[in-house]
């Protein structure tokens, strides 16, 4: 009897979780397959004949394809660099008594606290001078600079959880700093790397403000494209929804790919305080 109740309870929790999590995404899918005005239907028109016109239009639009390509390029390069520099910085912080390391770690944390607006405007000025506005290199640079502290912090925790005896054994064998990092530590830390890569990727993929200010028309990414579907005259709901659905796919693929590492990786970083 009690067991039966528990089953029902579990079932209800499961359904509730699924509905709450999926509802907006389902709504977006439904709207993306209908006209703009379907967004205003209440109750939502859940049963309908799907029209793929919006997707067709988007994929026939060179500027949309360009922004998709930009997003992929930006997220992949910037994430790779973040993980790379994050690993190096995090390792250094966790292993060596760098002068002022505690202060530096604190500064890393602090840099996440500064309101984004306070960072974006000075960056715009510097970029003006360096001719980096509206370039992919500029965007990568800005996002890497903005996200590396977080990666380094996560890495710092992860490496801290790996016993120093591993390094020492390697050092006795004559390995240098980079070799120890590459051949001894990183393989052990792989789940952590994967997890931090996923978190970083999601953050960069969805980044809005930096791209809005630092990119012109050449290197616009998906979130900015989405915002552009909403003008002060009308809201192109169907296009917004379709683009959101499309933009979810790479993230979902990545997570499906990395799910095995995600939990154990984040666990490595977070459990150690």
């Amino acid at each position: 009897m009690v067991k039966g109740l528990a089953h029902v309870g579990n079932f209800i929790i499961a359904i509730a979780l699924i509905v709450v999590s999926i509802y907006p995404v389902a709504w977006l899918i439904v709207v993306s397959l209908q006209s703009d005005s379907s967004a205003y239907q209440s109750p939502t028109n859940w049963i309908f004949v799907p029209q793929f016109g919006t997707y067709g239009k988007l994929f026939a639009d060179p500027s949309f394809l360009a922004s998709l390509a930009n997003s992929v390029q930006l997220a992949v390069i910037a994430t790779a660099l973040c993980v790379l520099f994050g690993a190096m910085g995090g390792y250094a912080l966790s292993r060596y008594k760098v002068p002022g390391a505690t202060g530096l770690t604190f500064m890393f944390a602090l840099s996440r606290l500064v309101p984004t607006f306070a960072i974006v405007v000075p960056t715009f000025y510097i970029y003006r001078q360096l001719n980096l506005l509206d370039t992919m290199a500029g965007l990568v640079l800005a996002l890497v600079a903005f996200q590396v502290p977080l990666s380094a912090l996560i890495m710092y925790r992860i490496f801290g959880g790996i016993p120093q005896s591993l390094d020492e054994a390697a050092r006795i064998d004559g390995a240098g700093f980079l070799r120890i990092l590459w051949q001894v530590i990183l393989p052990v830390a792989r789940p952590g790397l994967a997890a931090s890569a996923v978190v970083t990727f999601v953050l960069i993929w969805n980044e809005f403000l930096f791209v809005l200010v630092l990119a012109g028309n050449q290197v616009v990414t998906i979130p900015v494209t989405i915002a552009g579907f909403q003008t002060d005259k009308q809201v192109l709901w169907s296009s917004i929804a379709a683009t959101s659905v499309i933009s979810l796919i790479p993230i979902l693929l990545l997570i499906a790919f990395a799910q095995r590492h995600l939990l154990s990786g984040l666990g490595m970083g977070a459990v150690r305080e």
């Binding site: 907006p24 969805n206 998906i222 979130p223 917004i240």
Partner: peptide, 8 residues
């Protein structure tokens, strides 16, 4: 929910 673009 954590994966969606905030503007959306």
């Amino acid at each position: 929910p954590y994966l969606l673009v905030p503007v959306v």
